[in-house]
Amino acid sequence: MQKAFTLAVVSEEKKVDYVSYFLKDEANYWWESACALEEEEVITWDRLKKIFLGKYFPRYMRTQMELMFFELKQEGMTIGEYEKKFTELARFVGDYVDTDEKRAKRFQQGLKPWLRSRMAAFELTTYVEVV
């Protein structure tokens, strides 16, 4: 939905209306209940994302994905496979890879030790350079 909002230039005030329109079946029943239970009169986009993720992507699952990210090592993967998995899991740990330099550093830390030690001499600071 975020991508669609960017493309269609949807205002913050209209995002909840657009998303709720597309909810079907069980998700729509959940939304109707959530609206009835909310103490705030108007549910903002940020609030909707929070309660939606709480329902459909609970904290324990997010924690599990974070752990998978922090334990990720290249080991038997090619650089391409490692980069794909890194990118897939990085979205769950925003603050740890929210700058290009942090992302590059974390990616380099997960590389095979022999490769990581050789790359250290280059002092690469961007994600693209490290990959």
Rank of each mutant, 00 (worst) to 15 (best):
G54A: 14
T44K: 10
F70R: 12
C35P: 02
S11I: 01
L72E: 01
Q74A: 05
A27R: 10
D98P: 00
A121M: 09
T6S: 09
L111I: 01
K14L: 07
L23K: 05
A120K: 13
Y56S: 08
G110D: 07
T44G: 07
A90M: 07
M68N: 14
D100M: 04
E12R: 06
I51W: 01
M1V: 13
V9Y: 13
E38H: 11
Y127L: 02
F70L: 09
E40Y: 06
L72D: 05
K15D: 12
D95R: 11
I51M: 11
D46Y: 01
E71I: 04
M1S: 15
E38T: 12
F57Q: 12
T99F: 00
A8E: 13
K73S: 04
F92N: 13
L37Y: 11
L48Y: 03
K50F: 03
Y29A: 15
Y127A: 02
R106G: 00
T87D: 15
Y82A: 00
T44C: 03
K102T: 01
Q74Y: 07
V42H: 13
G94L: 06
A4K: 10
G80S: 13
Q74D: 05
N28W: 13
T87C: 09
K73F: 02
M65C: 13
S11V: 04
F92G: 08
R106F: 04
V130S: 06
Q108H: 11
Q64F: 06
E75H: 02
A121G: 09
V19R: 08
E32S: 11
D98Y: 04
S11C: 03
F107K: 02
L111N: 04
W45Y: 10
F69D: 00
Q64K: 08
I43R: 00
K3G: 00
K112H: 06
L67M: 15
T6Y: 06
A27W: 02
Y21F: 14
K15G: 07
R103Y: 03
C35Y: 02
Y96Q: 08
K55S: 10
N28C: 14
E129C: 02
R91A: 09
A27F: 08
E12Y: 07
A4R: 12
G80A: 13
V130C: 10
A121Y: 09
I79G: 06
N28V: 09
K49R: 05
T44N: 09
E12L: 03
E81I: 03
M65N: 13
L111V: 04
D95P: 03
K14Y: 01
I43Y: 00
Y18K: 09
K55M: 11
D17Y: 10
D98C: 05
M77S: 06
L67T: 14
G76T: 14
T78P: 03
L67S: 15
Q64P: 00
